[in-house]
Design a protein around this nucleic acid. Structure first.
Lengths: 317, 317
DNA sequence: CACTCTTATACTCATATATAGCATAAGCGG
DNA sequence: CCGCTTATGCTATATATGAGTATAAGAGTG
């Protein structure tokens, strides 16, 4: 299928065989917390060698997840393929290609025996949670440390570039904070040697639990993708129970975005889009006036799934 | 690094070694046409086995492209990793994993000898070009054929689903046409057996030149990604010469988007964003009043590259 | 039961952005 | 000068967004 000797072809190299590993970021939202399925006592994402007995990668992943969680996997999306040599511990063998996926589901309610694997993703990336305002960690630890790293830059231009990156990613207040830059922030911390994964000396533990290999980077990629996605595709649905109140829906979006939203505007946009309909029931245990229960309008959701719709992401109260 | 025997792990399979192939969608805009670099007489995208002597995949790809085009490769982005068994011709050996990239550059002005490789991407996907209004091909051939395919669905539900998909992707007029759904449209045509790649009998050649393997699918992925990207990241820059008129810039965006834009609004938004500055010169060969020449403001571009800005995509005149 | 607390829900308003159109400027070829 | 072309500045209107006010409807408490 490829003609050898063509000058215009990517050059042939010694080892073109590689080990393929799949890694999954499986997300659920429970109790106003965004959670991911973990293994190894919370130190790793579920992953393993690629089982080639399925027609597509996605199908293989889907069937595996459904067997594990006893829940249909509503949504799957490929995240990224990592094959960077420097992110792997030095080992003789061939290169490892790790293909990562994002999956949305609901937390398996006691899916068998020991399923302690669901962890809040903010356990690993605590600086991403601005729901309670700017986290103290950012202002007191992260930005100062990054500032020191920027000051250590070899020359003025590099120093300015670093400072500018810090500002662009970590901003200063909630107005400049861009919740989608999850990966850029993690990469910055990595480069600055502020996460243990980077393996540098002086790797200040900082905060946030580390994960094996580059799993925290994959997690950051997944969160970033999901945060971008909820703004224009109705994917939160996959994370919600069959019926819910509008506040519950809002809390789920907030959990993912790591930001508070303006309640009235949230509701306005949700029903402007026509994505939900009343079930007729009401939730009484709200602590105030009972809230109407809603369900997603499957037909509209399917329609918008392709053409694109917007979920609101107005700012906080 | 992985503990065998963990139930929560993706299952181990027989063959976990696979052949890795890189495929690149290299885009340039010349003469108001979006072009891609092709090989094999226009029948394939440049691709080849993965050369493992670079630290990252991207770096390997970048150096290869720069050697080929004699142009710095401004922008690289990973597209997708395809590993679907059914899209490959039946061959005994192991699975082929193809990792694809999108790269933006400028057409190598006579980059040596025979560089006939740059082809308009609309040669392969002619239904994507709406700059001259709705292409006759869509209304006269594609939609009717798809309609026939929808009618052949086994039951009513499937028929409705197909009709709905056709409507969502191919719309009916320029108001409902969503230029980002490039991949969805190609996949639909593929499923309907309207492209020769699908290998079905009755594979009506339709229109648009086919490519080897799944290269047309990769191309569609790249176009879709780029069309989405130009709306919120200033990446057109990578495709423009050092100085240009605003109309040239607009034509480039239109070439990529496959749509005409409203001139006045385009200009207003471009300078509102502060992305360009006057060079002082004027272009005289415009056929009318001479146009000011502009260049990109590198500083702003770098800044916005991360935080996100909007390039306008208002509708036609 | 009046009062208070909580959440739900309906509206209003100012501002930003998008879309479309009008008007004028400035070159060229006759 | 006239008609043609493209450039460029400006206005009007619709829609989206962000923020605030007002009222409704339950629970709990004295």
């Amino acid at each position: 299928m490829t003609t050898p000797g063509d000058a215009r072809r990517l050059e042939r190299a010694a080892g073109t065989e590689a080990v393929i590993e799949l890694t999954a970021v499986l997300v659920a939202v429970t109790g106003e917390e965004p959670r991911i399925l973990t293994v190894e006592d919370g130190k790793a994402l579920p992953s393993g060698p690629f089982a080639s007995d399925h027609r597509t990668l996605q199908m293989g992943l889907r069937s595996w997840v459904e067997r594990q969680t006893h829940h249909p996997l509503g949504y799957i999306e490929q995240l990224y393929t990592f094959a960077d040599r420097d992110r792997r511990p030095e080992g003789g063998g061939g290169r490892v290609i790790s293909i990562s996926y994002l999956g949305l589901t609901r937390e398996g309610r006691a899916s068998g025996e020991h399923v302690p694997g669901w962890q809040s993703w903010y356990r690993y990336l605590p600086w991403e949670d601005w729901r309670g305002g700017k986290p103290a960690l950012v202002g007191r630890v992260i930005v100062p440390q990054l500032g020191r790293w920027a000051a250590k830059a070899p020359d003025g231009a590099a120093r300015r570039a670093r400072t500018q990156r810090i500002h662009a990613t970590f901003g200063s207040d909630s107005a400049t904070w861009n919740e989608e830059l999850v990966l850029q922030r993690y990469e910055l911390l990595y480069e600055a040697g502020l996460v243990p994964e980077s393996g540098q000396r002086g790797a200040t533990a900082l905060a946030g639990e580390a994960m094996m290999l580059d799993h925290r980077r994959i997690l950051a990629t997944g969160i970033a993708r999901l945060r971008a996605k909820i703004k224009y595709r109705p994917v939160v649905f996959e994370l919600m129970p069959p019926s819910f109140t509008l506040l519950q829906l809002q809390r789920a979006v907030e959990a993912l975005a790591g930001q508070r939203l303006h309640k009235q505007n949230f509701r306005r946009l949700v029903d402007q889009q026509g994505l939900v309909e009343e079930t007729g029931g009401v939730a009484t245990a709200t602590g105030g006036r009972p809230a109407k229960l809603f369900r997603f309008r499957r037909s509209v959701v399917a329609e918008r799934a392709v053409s694109g719709t917007k979920l609101p992401l107005a700012r906080s109260p």
